[in-house]
């Protein structure tokens, strides 16, 4: 069994508007047989935080194009993307890219 994981999950660039405008969420993921990774975190977010219009945030099991995922201030591409194993006290930021000017 993997121990519960506490994370700071943040949304920005307008992605927070899908989460009642709240940018910072302190979350505790419960203990489960498998270690928590980003793939499971996204499922958890969809079930627990994201109430309306999931298609504006997700596409399949990943985030939709135009959303960058940053783990402890680094591009998730450098960390293994969906397979990154979450550590206690990690910071995960989902940022919608801006196009205005």
């Amino acid at each position: 069994m993997a121990a519960p994981v506490s994370l700071q999950v943040e949304f920005g660039g307008g992605a927070e508007l899908l989460f009642d405008g709240v940018k910072k969420h302190q979350v505790t993921l419960p203990s489960q047989p498998e270690p928590w990774d980003i793939r499971n975190l996204l499922k958890w977010i969809k079930q627990n935080l994201l109430k309306e219009r999931p298609e504006l945030f997700m596409q399949g099991e990943s985030v939709r194009p135009g959303i960058l995922v940053l783990i402890n201030d680094a591009d998730w591409e450098l960390m293994g993307e969906l397979d990154y194993k979450l550590q206690d006290q990690d910071n995960v930021l989902f940022i919608s890219t801006l196009h205005g000017g």
Partner: peptide, 20 residues
Amino acid sequence: CLFPKPPPPETVTNCADGGV
């Protein structure tokens, strides 16, 4: 490299709608 696929058009907000 960062954005290989464009975002779905309905997810893009402009300054008139979103404000700035």
